[in-house]
């Protein structure tokens, strides 16, 4: 019996939308901006309840980032909403200068991240956003695992002072993080303890890693699964602690292996406790159109791929 059974299914972007709605009711300083994707970002309820605190900026993401930076001056907590590609690559310099370097308390909330965006194809499937954002000094980068955790993260970042990149996705995805599980920015979660190998996963990949681990448990393989919902600041202690026990590591992310979670883990391991590591992610290529499951399989991010990688490392 799994410790984290599937509780239901919902898109992580709805976790953002529901978190934002709750913030609208509880925090009068929270304001929201969107670049013509309010429906996709599930911001409708917030907008309905707080029309005066919502700014529809049109298809003009650079301006949106600047407006958000300005709104912090006067004490507002702006949440920007658009797709991950338009939240990062398109507006990198606006984020860099007006938000990160200026230390503005802006929450950049990005949906439709990664391969699981699906049919829209590579123009929209950004696989470089984690890298772009984690390179910015002072930027916190969070990629929650399911609907519940995305909602928790949305609430948590409102109480955190400083710029944050919150990455989530489009497809319906299993809900498995209990609503009452403590979410702390920067604190990794050991979801399954094991002794043979550590699997560090982020976002949608956490569920797949758990499935791989539970299936291998039947074959007598003991896999530790750690949810790295905060990629920056990385919970270095949790990483070192786990591999001290297991001596082997795998990372799983819906992102280019260049610049992603895997590189961050590799840096911690090589500086502290050199450990064999396999990075599962997209290998320096663009995505393409397809269903989320087809894409995860084609690019080597499926449950089977994770199982194979684990068994190969244990040979």
């Amino acid at each position: 019996m799994s410790t984290y059974p599937k509780l239901g299914e919902k898109d992580t972007r709805s976790g953002f939308g529901d978190g934002l709605t709750e913030l609208g009711r509880t925090n009068p300083n929270v304001v929201a901006l969107c670049a013509d994707l309010a429906g996709s970002l599930k911001m409708d309820q917030f907008i309905k309840e707080n029309p005066e605190r919502y700014f529809q900026v049109g298809i003009a993401e650079a301006n949106m980032m600047g407006l958000a930076a300005g709104l912090t001056i006067g004490g507002k907590i702006p949440f920007t909403g658009t797709f991950a590609n338009f939240s990062t690559g398109r507006v990198y310099d606006q984020i860099r200068q007006s938000i990160a370097y200026s230390g503005k308390n802006v929450k950049i909330c990005a949906s439709h991240a990664g391969l699981t965006l699906g049919e829209d194809g590579a123009t929209h499937q950004i696989l470089e956003d984690i890298g772009l954002m984690k390179m910015l000094p002072g930027m916190t980068v969070i990629c929650p695992a399911d609907y519940n955790q995305t909602k928790q993260a949305t609430l948590a970042i409102a109480d955190y002072e400083g710029p944050v990149y919150l990455r989530f996705g489009r497809p319906k995805w299993p809900i498995f993080i209990p609503e009452n599980m403590l979410f702390e920015i920067g604190k990794a979660q050991v979801l399954k303890e094991g002794k043979d190998i550590s699997v560090f996963a982020t976002g949608h990949m956490v569920w797949l890693a758990l499935q791989a681990a539970e299936s291998l448990a039947n074959q007598g393989v003991s896999v530790e699964v750690i949810n790295i919902h905060t990629i920056k600041p990385l919970d270095r202690e949790a990483v070192v602690k786990s591999v001290t026990k297991t001596g082997k590591a795998i990372t799983c992310e819906e992102h280019n292996v260049l610049g992603g979670l895997g590189e961050s883990i590799a840096a911690v391991l090589s500086e502290n406790i050199p450990t064999p590591l396999k990075m599962i992610g997209v290998n320096d290529t663009f995505g393409e159109s397809g269903t989320p499951d087809q894409l995860l399989e084609k690019y080597g991010l499926s449950v089977e791929n994770i199982q194979t990688a684990i068994l190969n490392m244990l040979k």
């Binding site: 700014f55 407006l67 300005g70 006067g74 004490g75």
Partner: peptide, 15 residues
């Protein structure tokens, strides 16, 4: 970038 930021600050003043 400054016009967007100034407009954002102006919006905050209105709020």
């Amino acid at each position: 970038q400054g016009l967007s930021v100034a407009i954002g600050a102006a919006l905050a003043k209105k709020l």
